[in-house]
Design a protein around this nucleic acid. Structure first.
Length: 323
DNA sequence: ATGGTTTTTACTGCGTC
DNA sequence: GACGCGGTAAAAACCAT
């Protein structure tokens, strides 16, 4: 695949503040000095009196966008996932199963009972600890991926809830933490009405798309999560904003999808395809023409599919008009 | 594994700037 | 001549069985 974005500069929002670390925002309410944003420290302060207006500027979401795999590699700030080894090996105490003391002598019955109790407790603590670590790592990964994909907080929360359940139900053995974490996030995104495609998930995850899909199915089935197919409309805001379309166009696209829905045009068709087609059709109807290839880039859908779907959409619209 | 359906890939022709 | 668009056929991917 070749680089599809000659106008990259326009589409990409990278922080400009690299040489200059501070930028003037407005006046200080206290002393009239300049309020300055210190990008490095992430603070917004007055340069006269030092009044801190706001600590920690909030990360408003992804500040990079990528349209294919190679670009993702270049722009991603999240970087490769950490490969923190799951240490523990050799670090935690184990109690021998043999009832011998340090000199190899047999233990008295009383001692043996005591050791047995210790073994039990040791085991309990150890597994609890390992679950903790497991959870911690998974939640870290979930958070990392979620922010890379610009998923809202509530999605992360549901993701962590689902993950805990998976842990409870012993769904983990035999599956990678990362894989389950990704699947769970994928599920949560869909539940939250802000779905991301499997490809998008795979782009920020360490595991392959196939494994994500497999694990996802498994988890959904075992936890009997009820997830309906993604709603095409939920893609509209993202697409139209990435294409710089007006509110009106987005609204128009909504309508198209709605009438299509009423006529049950979408059964088995990919929701993303429908959404992409609706966006394209809407752009025509509102004279904000974007090309099919632009839409296909943003939506990761082939132009052919867009054509097919948008014909169907317009047809559906026509039926309504004549009926 | 299989078969049916949808999506993608690749290619072609047409009109326009 | 390049570009946007439409259509088609065959391959690939997907999904339920």
């Amino acid at each position: 695949m070749t680089n599809p974005t000659p106008n990259e500069g326009e589409r990409t929002r990278v922080r400009e503040q690299t040489t200059e670390s501070a930028s003037v925002v407005n006046e200080c309410p206290e002393c009239g000095g300049n309020i300055v944003t210190d990008e490095v420290r992430g603070e917004t302060v007055c340069d006269e009196c030092g009044l801190v207006v706001r600590e920690e500027t909030v990360d408003p979401g992804p500040e990079w966008r990528a349209f294919d795999a190679s670009e993702r590699g270049q722009k991603s700030r999240v970087g490769a996932p950490r490969t923190k080894l799951m240490h523990d090996e050799g670090m935690s105490t184990n109690i021998s199963w043999q009832d011998k003391d340090a000199y190899g002598r047999a233990l008295s019955p009383r001692q043996r009972q005591k050791m047995q109790r210790l073994r039990t407790w040791n085991e309990r603590f150890r597994t609890r600890d390992s679950r903790d670590r497991n959870l911690k790592q998974a939640l870290g990964e979930i958070d990392r991926m979620a922010s890379a994909l610009g998923l809202p907080r509530n999605v992360r929360e549901t993701a962590s809830v689902i993950y805990r359940r998976a842990l409870e139900e012993d769904l983990l053995p035999g599956r990678s933490i990362e894989g389950v974490a990704t699947s769970v996030l994928y599920a949560a995104a869909r539940l939250g009405g802000t779905p991301r495609s499997l490809d998008e998930m795979a782009a920020v995850s360490r595991v392959e798309k196939d494994e994500i899909a497999r694990t996802y199915r498994y988890v959904v089935r075992q936890l009997k999560l009820e997830i309906e197919p993604a709603d095409p409309q939920s893609f509209l805001p993202r697409f139209s904003s990435e294409l710089g379309l007006s509110e009106e166009a987005e609204h128009r696209a909504h309508q198209l999808l709605q009438t299509a829905k009423d006529q049950e045009i979408h059964s088995g068709k990919s929701p993303v395809g429908l959404a992409a087609a609706a966006v394209y059709a809407a752009s025509l109807l509102t004279n904000e023409k974007v090309t099919q290839s632009e839409v296909s880039d943003v939506a990761n859908i082939s132009e052919v599919t867009i054509r097919n779907r948008y014909h169907e959409l317009l047809e559906a619209e026509g039926n309504i008009a004549s009926a």
